[in-house]
Design a protein around this nucleic acid. Structure first.
Length: 115
DNA sequence: CTTTTGATTGTTGCC
DNA sequence: GGCAACAATCAAAAG
């Protein structure tokens, strides 16, 4: 059981208050991994849309989310697995980010200036 | 050490 | 290109 006993720790809806932590804009932004929902959407968006050709974003989104919760863990499993795969990818990202972040030039000098 | 939060990911459809 | 609900998530920072 998760230690986080927070019932509703959901993020606010459309709350653009001043962010204590400015949106990370690092060149090597350690973007996080995708969530199972992302993979779920990729595969299900076709299906939901197939059954709901008239469903727009809002309806589709709500319907999709509802279905997602309706699915069993085993149903989500494949999607979660994909999410885990991406998680490992994100970890590597962070590693690289941290590697450069910790020390500026440490041997390898690859600095792609995007901005 | 624990909890919260903040940032991120992807979908469609419109301007 | 960005934003809108939807859900997850997870790593860092505050407490």
């Amino acid at each position: 059981m998760p230690k986080e006993a927070t019932k509703a720790t959901r993020r606010k809806a459309a709350d653009k208050e001043k962010a204590p932590r400015k949106t990370k804009k690092d060149k090597n932004a350690p973007k996080r991994a995708l969530s199972a929902y992302m993979f779920f959407s990729q595969d299900w968006r076709e299906r939901v849309k197939a059954e709901n050709p008239d469903a727009s974003f809002g309806e589709l989104g709500k319907l999709l989310g509802t279905k997602w919760k309706e699915l069993d863990e085993e149903e989500k499993k494949p999607y979660i697995e994909q999410a885990e795969r991406d998680k490992a990818r994100a970890e590597r990202e962070k590693k690289d980010y941290d590697n450069k972040k910790v020390d500026s030039g440490s041997g390898d000098g690859d600095e792609d200036d995007d901005e």
